[in-house]
Design a protein around this nucleic acid. Structure first.
Length: 505
RNA sequence: GCCUCCAUAGCUCAGUUGGUUAGAGCGCCGGACUGUUAAUCCGUAGGUCCUUGGUUCGAGUCCAAGUGGGGGCGCCA
């Protein structure tokens, strides 16, 4: 029997056995400091020569990063330590002395880390992200289960493309072509007619060659579907849902979010009513024609651009200053300090230069936005910068949305779709709609979208036998993780990302 | 698919208008020292400067093509 680091609070001044891996260590003549990780947390363990004796001390000294050990000792409260506790080792047992570990505690490139994903998962930052991911999953289930939603699964093999737009992965299904599911939505509707309110939670596959920080070829999606719900009720539910998940995650994972340097106060700006914009209003804001609390989307970008320029000037000047300072014979410590700082400044300047290249294009794109088009990546960023909390955009032009979305009464050019856009450039995290419940209109839409009618006969049955107003939405799990953790790239939000150009490990 | 930046030690990066034997930090190994926090200090080892071709007396540096990667856009959620 052994104890987990997570439980140390319960064992203060008591003896425990912790089993885990050496995340980092330092040694001296009389003390060895081991940062132990056991999957539930990190804690420093101290091996003292006068406590364990010479033989065990020598064994401890020969440990390497990622060696596996069991450490028996007393738990001591110490505010200076990560986690707030320290283990004073009395004896140790070695399971395995690790070979030289490739991932050091210093910086690494993304490519290098991606190739070592199976080991990278052990790193503190990746550990924290996966802990948050787990908390999000639990919070999602808690929310829907507490509301009486039934969790059901949609098939992964499907015989046809749901919306006819996306590129799917084809497989051989006993001689027939089957596609990997891109959405469980249509099946969700059938299940909602059986159980009232349901949600699916499963993997989704897209074969687009999308090489961006917000795309994966395989990702997890949550798709609730509710009978007797309209667009407004749908938005109410989405808002309540997102708030509930964020609050629960912050409550349970604050230390992990702090490890990730997540600004939790900023995240908690969700504690306000989410603004609901029609597509037309959203465009006016995007183009800078309409302001929100004195904030203009275009102006904000121009300010960002100006401050990037200024930062480059200042940092270039600082580099010159520091280079001059270390030119002559200076003490080694001084030189090292300045060199480190110069390297950091260069990196920051490179980032600012990216901004200088990108922001003008974004402004251009926002200014020239054509009514009727879908929002591009940068458009979402420009729009959401005006708000602190997620923002809804509803009533979209019919041609750019799926065939199953319900037409706005009296205006068939628009449909009752809704997207929820997260702040700080995280973009769309939820996409949903009220579904078309009229058989005649749906048949017309399927023809307009040039989809094979016979493939949708079963779906049309839902409008033949007790058709009711209903609505639902899809939430991309990884995009939610990305926003809550404030991570740049989706590849860090899933244990083993599958994306364009990445199938290994 | 398009635009753009890049490829130098195990890792992260310097390398001046093209010039003689290509450097630093970290990591590894050896040592010193310390209740240490990515510790610090001294020392050793470690290189197909992505590939191919070209310009040149001379190429890590310039040119072309290829390969691989980062960032942005598109497709898309």
């Amino acid at each position: 029997m052994h104890q987990y680091i997570r439980q140390f609070a319960e064992y203060v001044d008591k003896t425990v056995t912790a089993k885990g891996w050496v995340a980092n260590m330092r040694d001296s003549k009389t003390n060895i400091f081991i940062v132990l990780r056991d999957g539930t947390g990190f804690a420093q363990a101290v091996v003292s020569l006068d406590v364990v004796g010479e033989e065990q001390f020598e064994i401890a000294k020969r440990l390497t990063q990622e060696s596996a050990v069991a450490l028996k000792g007393k738990v001591v409260a110490d505010e200076r330590q990560i986690g707030g506790y320290e283990l004073q080792v009395e004896s140790l047992e070695v399971y395995h002395v690790s070979e030289e570990y490739p991932i050091s505690n210093k910086e690494h490139g993304v490519r290098f880390l991606a190739d070592k994903r199976h080991l990278w998962l052990r790193s503190k930052r990746q550990w924290a992200i996966m802990q948050v991911r787990n908390a999000i999953i639990i919070a999602i289930h808690d929310f829907f289960q507490s509301k009486g939603f039934i969790q059901m699964d949609s098939p992964i093999f499907t015989g046809n493309a749901v919306e006819g737009t996306t590129t799917l992965f084809g497989t051989d299904f006993f001689g027939e072509t089957a596609y990997l599911a891109q959405s469980g939505q249509l099946y969700g509707e059938a299940m909602a007619m059986a159980h009232g309110a349901i949600y699916t939670f499963g993997p989704t596959f897209r074969a687009e060659k999308s090489d961006t920080p917000r795309h994966l070829a395989e990702f997890w999606m949550i798709e609730p579907e509710m009978a007797f719900y309209d667009l407004d009720m749908n938005m109410d539910l989405i808002e309540e849902f997102v708030k509930s998940v964020v609050r629960q995650v912050v409550d349970r994972c604050r230390p992990q979010l702090e490890m990730l340097d997540r600004d939790v106060d900023k995240l908690m700006k969700i504690d306000q009513e989410f603004v609901r914009l029609s597509y037309d209003d959203a465009i006016a804001i995007l183009k800078g024609e309409k302001e929100i609390n004195g904030r203009n989307a275009i102006t904000i970008q121009e300010e960002d651009l100006a401050s990037a320029k200024k930062a480059i000037e200042e940092k270039t000047a600082e580099i010159a200053e520091r280079e001059a300072a270390i030119k002559g014979g200076v003490k080694k410590g001084v030189r090292k300090f300045n060199e480190t700082r110069i390297l950091q400044l260069r990196k920051e300047i490179a980032n600012h230069e990216e901004q200088l290249r990108n922001i003008p294009k974004w402004i251009e794109s926002a200014r020239n936005f054509v009514h009727g088009e879908d929002f591009g990546n940068s458009d979402e960023t420009v729009l959401t910068k005006v708000f602190d909390a997620p923002v809804f955009v509803y009533n979209w032009p019919a041609p750019i949305k799926a065939f199953y979305m319900k037409e706005v009464e009296g205006d068939p050019n628009y449909v009752k779709g809704v997207d929820l856009l997260a702040p700080d450039g995280h973009g769309e995290i939820v996409g949903g709609s009220e579904r078309e419940n009229s058989l005649a209109i749906l048949e017309r839409k399927i023809k307009e979208h040039d989809l094979p009618m016979e493939a949708f006969e079963w779906y049309l049955d839902l409008r033949r036998f007790g058709s009711v107003p209903h609505a639902g939405f899809g939430l991309g799990l990884e995009r939610l993780v990305r926003w809550i953790c404030d991570i740049h790239h989706l590849r860090e939000t899933i244990p083993f990302p599958r994306r364009y150009g990445r199938l290994f490990p």
